[in-house]
Design a protein around this nucleic acid. Structure first.
Ligand code: FES
Ligand code: FES
Lengths: 134, 134
DNA sequence: AATGAATGATACTATATTAGTATCATTTGT
DNA sequence: ACAAATGATACTAATATAGTATCATTCATT
């Protein structure tokens, strides 16, 4: 079980690096060398970040990616949403109707409480924070 | 992404029910009706709980399962270990060597901190607690 | 204008995890 | 003897994650 999947992690790492470059255009091949992430998947991730408006891209020779959103405004939670979708810590009652009474199910209640705490923490984590406390 | 898988959830639900039966022998078919969990998988789960020493079983006609461990001594965390193995919130650096410097990787550090909080919470959750606060 | 280095879009394969099923031997109360 | 139960084990299916491949398009450089 993992909270952060590789794509999210790759994205965070790439953004961290880009944030340090202050607007320089960086190609995926440079990032590849820098991060050691398999190139094709790195490209996939970068393309997605571009579509999401976090990076802007420049096509053609000498092209690449630039960070366009402020590091302080990029939350790890956002990246997780993008690459992992909305998450819920508990699935049991979603697909089926297992909770005899969803409203009173204590497992659900407790796990949900933990989930909320995690979300709260994730919502404080920005790329900027990750940079600072490196 | 889910913190608690179905098997863990089924186990918790089964144990909750058994805890309320105070030592009565309950067959998997009764539990099946009670919980609405697919029978074969419920059996698998119960058998596992038996092997783990949480239940004892009685074979043969009128056989079934009885809770043998105290509800206050059964932690949700234990069930997760049994059915999900040890978990870690972050995989990136495990298989590969992506963290340029594992010791200083801030992503790792932060996620680990969150993970520890979750573990701490899970370690307070017992079947007894789940019963009480239903 | 040609070239090559880059991204965009998309579809595909592989691997791992989770979920669920099936089978048959063994036990035991009636 | 029989039916109702578990033990053990192996199997299939579904889903999620990870990674690859392809081809069209763009554009600085020459
Ligand atoms: S029974 Fe699974 S969450 Fe309520
Ligand atoms: S780079 Fe992924 S955890 Fe350090």
């Amino acid at each position: 079980m993992s909270l952060i999947t590789k794509e999210t992690d790759y994205a965070a790492r790439a953004l961290l690096f880009l944030a340090k470059q202050k607007g320089r255009v960086v190609s995926s091949s440079e990032l590849d060398k820098e991060l050691g992430v398999p190139r094709p998947i790195l490209r996939k991730v970068l393309q997605r970040l571009q579509r999401e408006g976090i990076l802007i891209s420049q096509k053609g020779n000498r092209g690449g990616f630039t960070l366009v959103k402020e590091p302080k405004d990029i939350f790890l939670m956002d990246l997780m949403k993008i690459f992992q979708g909305n998450f819920s810590f508990l699935n049991c009652f979603v697909r089926d109707k297992l909770c005899a009474n969803v409203k009173t199910c204590s497992i659900r209640k407790h796990v949900y409480k933990i989930e909320q705490k995690v979300v709260r923490e994730l919502k404080t984590l920005t790329i900027q924070k990750l940079m600072r406390e490196n």
